[in-house]
Design a binder for these strands. Structure first.
Lengths: 216, 216
DNA sequence: GATTATTTGTTAAAAAATAGATATAATATG
DNA sequence: CATATTATATCTATTTTTTAACAAATAATC
């Protein structure tokens, strides 16, 4: 009954579809076609339909998709029908920016507490959230039903933080540190690697991918 | 002579290899095998060799790769042998965090100026960088040889900023706003989408990808 | 009410990416 | 100096992902 072997690219695109559908919903548009979705977020109609087809039949032939209903279906697929409790580790600049980022809460992700090993910061509030010392982190996770941790500490400390996290009931890590974390299989890690993104951009610019002439 | 049709995944991995090699270099290790690189950043030796093979022969059979030399080769491939001048648009929290992120400069990317349309911020300094008004942006790009722009403004304004940028000699955009930007083909865009990352994480956690039993 | 327009869901084909296997080169060893 | 060992480079096969084509279903039109 379970569908799996879903391409990760498909899951990413579902997230973008959902965000786009949320925008369309605000304009009180009731129905939308795969072609319109594709145009709205840069893709092809076939890909939109294929992505959705992994999970079921959500549209009506000859008509399209009900915007609100499809968006809800996608949110269910992505696991966004529940609220996710998160903690943030690292109260530096990046941590501060992340703690104030509204996009998370809008999508059901809420940062409940911030942890840092700088004792000058511990006890202070950051954007309305208390900063705790790292050594209280494991207990806090257990006590507050935290399932996702955001690592925003310098690269040198990231693995140490991860080592603590994997001993707790944490299920996923969003890692902003520019290092490859080693964790057991049961903990999901996603890396947001700013430098890698810039370097791919650099490569693409240098090799003029789009203006490249045809060649054989 | 040009090699192309390189998988984007390969380019991303090259960036990670390079960062890992930089670490290894610091330990004054001279030689390294594809297996050691793979272990160091979570991959397979075959994949490391395949990725490198797209661009040439950098190793010695029976020996491995010279760390320093390979790192330099990869940096050349990625276009990191030159310095990249960037501007940052958006002096909010995220912009502030990005302007202070040291990882960029270490890899040859330097933010030269910051732009914002909040006149209360214009004229101030942010982490040692001047904040200019958006209407001076186009001239600044031309005058200072800027080739990459980082967009860190709210989603509602991101397309407006992009529209200005595409009229300048800018070559690439690193977009942090949670919207799909529409730009002409000759401008490269990379999206760093924080919510998408969290939502993929959410999906993976809910569907227990790693602990999934085999099934047919 | 039959016919034409759309637009989906599905199947098939194509392309891309990953993994595996083998041949080759360099080094070290006896 | 021949041989065993190590590790790359290359070639092949498998798997995965994307793209395209087509049949089924709905709505609109004459």
């Amino acid at each position: 009954m379970k569908e799996f072997k879903i391409p990760e690219a498909t899951v990413s695109r579902l997230s973008v579809y959902s965000r786009y559908l949320t925008e369309v919903e605000k304009q009180h548009i009731v129905s939308i076609s795969s072609g319109e979705i594709a145009e709205g977020m840069g893709g092809t109609p076939a890909q939109v339909r294929k992505d959705l087809a992994y999970f079921g039949e959500f549209g009506t032939r000859g008509v399209g998709y009900n915007v609100k209903q499809l968006n809800q279906e996608i949110k269910n697929i992505l696991g966004l029908s529940k609220k996710w409790n998160m903690i943030l580790i690292g109260a530096g600049n990046l941590g501060s920016a992340l703690s104030q980022y509204h996009g998370f809460r809008e999508r059901g992700f809420e940062i409940k507490g911030i942890f840092d090993n700088d004792l000058n910061k511990v006890g202070l509030m950051l954007n309305g959230l208390p900063i705790y010392p790292i050594n209280e982190m494991a207990d806090y996770i257990e006590a507050n039903g935290i399932s996702i941790a955001i690592i925003a500490v310098p690269g040198d400390y990231a693995q140490d933080v991860a080592d603590i996290l994997v001993e707790t009931p944490i299920k996923g890590i969003l890692n902003f540190a520019p290092v490859v974390l080693t964790v057991p299989d049961e903990v999901e890690v996603r890396n947001v690697d700013l430098s890698v993104n810039l370097e791919v951009l650099s490569y693409n610019i240098e090799n003029n991918l789009d203006t490249m002439p045809e060649e054989e």
